[in-house]
Simulated scan of single mutants.
Amino acid sequence: MAAQDRALLPDALRGLALLGIVLINVQDFAGFRVWEQQGLDRAVQVLTDVLFNGKAVALFAMLFGWGAAGLWERHGRGLYVRRHLLLLVIGLAHFTLLWHGDIIGGYAVSALIFILLLRRSAGALLRWAWGLYLLGALNLVVGYGLYRTAPGSRVLFSPDFAPHQSYASILADRAADLPYQLGSEVLLASFTIPLFAFGAWAYRSGLLARPAEHRPLLRRLLAWGFGLGLPLGLGLAYLNTLDTEQAGMLSEGMRVISGLPVAFGYVGLFGLLSLQARVPALLAALARSGRLALTHYITQSLVLTLIFYPYTFGLYGQVHAAAAVGTALLLALAQIAFSAWYLRRYGRGPLESLLRWAVYGRC
């Protein structure tokens, strides 16, 4: 939709989510082990765990659900399905050509499954969201908590590159993994669909588009979200200092459990800030970045693989948390600054324009 018709709050939250995602994803791009960080590196790791690990992606998924609900209500099934099939193609290309950690394709698959819930009322969406979220969190904690392993057995889920491995070799490996990736994207739906349902509820209730009507709820989200989620985030940070496989698996459950309440806290905080007489400059800057979400997300993968992967500078596994997160933060700040310049001249991101043309037949 036109810039003047866009709600500020969803774009600002999307910009925040993009910032948090790159600060967390850089661990995978750089290939450092979280449990081996010491001193400043450990402090940076703890800070990112508490504020963003699991939180940014939960917020991003809810916003995806918010947008999916709007698309469904404005344009119906046909265009909804076409847009998400195109996003699946983009996600698979991103996975194959750039980075194994793509979430675009997984969100697209989840959005197609999410059709089963989109016709339900706002109240029913909220009940499904809580039920599926709590069931998934319980399954993670109980399932992963059954493992009993010795110290030193924790594994890194980042790629295992050979020294100076070529881009062609890495590309061939990822192309061979495409069937596995498609299966993973179906499994991802168990985590993303409840978050989509929370986002769809927010769309139906007008929480993000009309925050002035929801001040009491925004205050509760701020208080309860951060009050519950930040201590849970400290639990995640503690698990990420331990080197057992059990701690690594429990941390996956804790990412999910701590992610949702802190994401709610950010919604409450940004929602209340958006109601100020003068919109804070930070919100406006993040909103501009959020309008280029697809372009920025893909660009993050392109830049960080060029910095860390073995076919370029070969820094993979050679840097620790502070240097890696600092690099990601500089990239995110550059994207935020670039967004203001770009939108003044073009109004819509390049990949956003391409997707719009493919879906609607116009730029």
Rank of each mutant, 00 (worst) to 15 (best):
172 A>N: 02
87 L>W: 03
75 H>Y: 15
25 N>M: 01
60 F>Y: 12
165 Q>G: 04
237 A>E: 04
328 A>R: 02
346 Y>H: 09
115 I>A: 13
122 A>Y: 01
168 A>D: 05
353 S>K: 08
50 V>E: 11
72 W>R: 15
334 A>G: 10
174 R>I: 01
155 V>T: 04
230 L>C: 06
219 R>W: 13
344 R>V: 01
187 L>R: 13
70 G>E: 15
129 A>L: 03
198 F>H: 13
248 G>T: 13
207 L>Y: 01
39 G>Q: 12
355 L>Y: 07
184 S>K: 09
322 A>L: 00
320 H>L: 08
330 L>Y: 04
255 R>D: 05
253 G>Y: 07
27 Q>N: 10
354 L>S: 04
192 T>R: 13
337 A>E: 00
265 G>L: 09
35 W>I: 09
318 Q>F: 02
335 Q>L: 05
263 A>V: 09
280 P>W: 03
170 I>P: 14
288 R>M: 10
171 L>Q: 03
227 G>S: 08
309 Y>E: 01
44 V>N: 07
109 V>A: 06
205 S>Y: 10
242 L>D: 10
56 A>V: 09
246 Q>R: 05
3 A>C: 06
325 V>T: 03
50 V>Y: 11
163 P>C: 04
295 T>S: 13
148 R>G: 00
223 A>W: 03
19 L>V: 08
79 L>F: 00
230 L>E: 06
226 F>M: 11
279 V>M: 05
289 S>L: 13
287 A>F: 09
38 Q>K: 08
69 A>M: 12
89 V>S: 08
280 P>H: 01
289 S>M: 14
12 A>N: 09
313 F>A: 14
105 G>S: 04
76 G>I: 11
219 R>H: 13
288 R>L: 10
22 V>E: 04
144 Y>E: 15
221 L>G: 05
30 A>F: 04
262 V>P: 08
64 F>P: 09
66 W>H: 15
83 R>C: 10
86 L>D: 02
38 Q>R: 10
363 C>Q: 08
214 H>D: 12
273 L>D: 06
127 R>G: 04
290 G>L: 07
299 T>K: 05
19 L>S: 07
71 L>W: 14
159 P>G: 04
37 Q>E: 14
232 L>T: 12
58 A>E: 09
186 V>K: 12
299 T>P: 08
343 L>G: 05
352 E>R: 09
149 T>S: 06
254 M>T: 01
67 G>P: 13
220 R>Y: 11
84 H>R: 06
97 L>N: 00
151 P>F: 02
298 I>D: 02
21 I>M: 12
39 G>P: 02
153 S>T: 04
69 A>F: 11
38 Q>M: 07
127 R>L: 06
251 S>Y: 15
249 M>I: 02
97 L>Y: 00
352 E>V: 05
